[in-house]
Write a protein that binds this DNA or RNA. Structure first.
Lengths: 117, 117
DNA sequence: CAGTGGTATCGTCTATCGACGATAGACGAT
DNA sequence: ATCGTCTATCGTCGATAGACGATACCACTG
């Protein structure tokens, strides 16, 4: 029982229901859940690597991610989906094809939440 | 196939094989794995809450943790084991009974690794 | 020594993750 | 319209995580 987005929006700009947490206060009782969710999304070496790739190479990129990883395309797509659901990355709508880039505010909030511990 | 520590060391001071990563350089190729491991350990609301409890209440505490959480003692113990395995907390050997406290250096390394992304 | 309180581990169950191949959708090019 | 390329999703599998009760341990106390 995973993702249930209708087939008609394959490349939706942002996963709603994820990034709206990025503006919540840091000492909210839900801050624990937010921090845990962000940490969980980062809690896989491949996803850390993807984040680094996106952070290093001037943000946007596309399918080249798959080429640089020793994983099937569908697996990489799944990792991208998880990072996207956590609000840490988003699709770059302006690019020729689909391109991903870091969401700096999400990363910032992650760091802020972590610093609050 | 979980924990396989021999029954004879129930309260071992530190889980070896976890904290030795805390001194590695930040740009090591293994830094990804370290960051992912730390994030994974923090990637659960209960564990975030435990970390906060330990950070707030002047570090050391013991079984009171169980009293403040809506979970069975064995479950809390498991979460503590995970945090301990990640090197984020350690047992306070000096206390009358078992006491846990944050390992500030681990938290610092976590923050440093995250800032490196 | 028997009893007790605080912990860690075992064994088991369910839910979720991680990976893959197959396939569907979107879209530019032919 | 058909093809080829790029992605996202489906369906499935094995592995792992998360939770619990039961139980073993250990350090004391009586």
């Amino acid at each position: 029982m995973k993702r249930r987005r209708p087939r008609s929006a394959p490349c939706g700009p942002d996963d709603p229901g994820a990034a709206e947490a990025l503006a919540r206060p840091l000492d909210d009782p839900e801050a624990d859940a937010d921090l845990a969710a962000l940490a969980k999304a980062v809690g896989h070496p491949i996803r850390v690597r993807i984040l680094r790739m996106l952070a290093l190479k001037n943000a946007r990129m596309c399918c080249r991610i798959v080429d640089e990883l020793p994983l099937a395309q569908s697996t990489v797509s799944e990792h991208l989906r998880i990072l996207r659901a956590a609000g840490l990355i988003k699709v770059n709508e302006k690019g020729p094809r689909v391109g991903y880039c870091i969401v700096p505010s999400a990363l910032k909030r992650f760091k802020a939440l972590l610093n609050g511990v």
